[in-house]
């Protein structure tokens, strides 16, 4: 039981990070971005390639792990570079595609994101191939946090602990950014009322750029963490898309804190449902969460109105 909760929180942290970007895109740009999952996948794979380059430059066969984690400093640098790469992809996509469709019906943007997702996913598979891979093949010993005789016990790897800590730190950082900085305040204003924000002198185009960059950076962190704790697959983003949407809707779409809460709940729900419905139906949990919340409270847990 405790173990399931711990696993659920680790998965939930990754989902939260991804869902924050998704819900921000929705709040500022007002459409459900089906291509957001691909930013996670691209971030993760860009980090993989950068890692390869760094190791080649250093002449090393593999990373020397930073004890107790399974990876070395190279992955940290690679992830930072990947953040820049993913942000560039998001900005180029916005420039070429979304910005041209912004003044039409919102649903056109959704269709466009659907097409972009398809192109990005298959391009990724074309470039990196379909076979799953890993950043590091180091084996990690799980630390027993709770002994086996208390509710089945709980063991967790240092990498998983890092995922939890990073997710918490990111959320705190994001909160400070949104409440304390001018740009953050401008973003909240634009989300509430874009016309009024523009009249009040907010640089809406700058806000849109910032939204894409933050979304892409969070997506890359989520993607790298997913790759670190599970594995790297070309379908990584596609498989996470439904949990991301479930988290965003559950928390109240457009609500950043709701997305974090929603992500943790979706992760827990998936993990706790496995003994009941079997691991093979794990991915269906998100769908049930979406249907349930839409029927009971369509504005989401923290949302006010739709």
């Amino acid at each position: 039981m405790l173990q399931l909760i711990a696993d659920g929180l680790v998965v939930g942290s990754v989902v939260s990070l991804g869902a924050v970007g998704l819900t921000m895109t929705y709040a500022i740009l007002r459409f459900a971005n089906f291509a957001h999952g691909e930013l996670l996948a691209w971030g993760a794979y860009l980090a993989l390639s950068m890692l390869g380059i760094l190791l080649a430059i250093g002449g090393a066969e593999r990373m020397v792990p930073l004890s107790p984690f399974s990876f070395g400093w190279e992955l940290v640098v690679a992830a930072l570079v990947a953040c820049v790469g993913a942000a560039a992809i998001a900005l180029v996509l916005d420039k070429l595609l979304f910005s041209r469709l912004r003044h039409g019906a919102a649903i056109t943007l959704v269709i466009a994101s659907f097409g972009a997702a398809l192109a990005l996913r298959n391009l990724l598979q074309f470039l990196w191939g379909p076979i799953p891979t890993y950043y590091s093949r180091e084996l990690q010993i799980a630390i027993p946090l709770v002994p086996r005789d208390v509710l089945g016990g709980m063991r967790i790897t240092p990498d998983q602990l890092l995922v939890l800590a990073l997710a918490a730190a990111t959320v705190v950082g994001l909160h400070l950014f949104l409440t304390r900085t001018t740009l953050g305040k401008a973003m909240r204003a634009t989300a509430l009322n874009p016309q009024l924000a523009r009249v009040a002198g907010v640089d809406v185009d700058g806000v849109i750029r910032a939204t894409w960059i933050i979304g892409a950076v969070l997506a890359t962190i989520a993607g790298v963490l997913a790759g670190l704790t599970v594995q790297l697959r070309p379908q990584l983003g596609f498989d996470l898309l439904l949990p991301l949407f479930a988290a965003a809707i559950l928390g109240g779409i457009g609500n950043v804190y709701g997305a974090v809460l929603g992500g943790l709940i979706v992760g827990l729900a998936e993990s706790l449902a496995v003994p009941l419905i079997g691991a093979e139906y794990r991915a269906a949990v998100s769908f049930l969460v979406i249907i349930a919340i839409l029927l009971v409270r369509p504005q989401g847990l923290l949302g006010e109105r739709t």
């Binding site: 459900a32 649903i107 959704v110 979406i290």
Partner: peptide, 8 residues
């Protein structure tokens, strides 16, 4: 909104 149908 339309987006919800797409997601569902």
């Amino acid at each position: 909104r339309h987006d919800y149908l797409a997601i569902t």
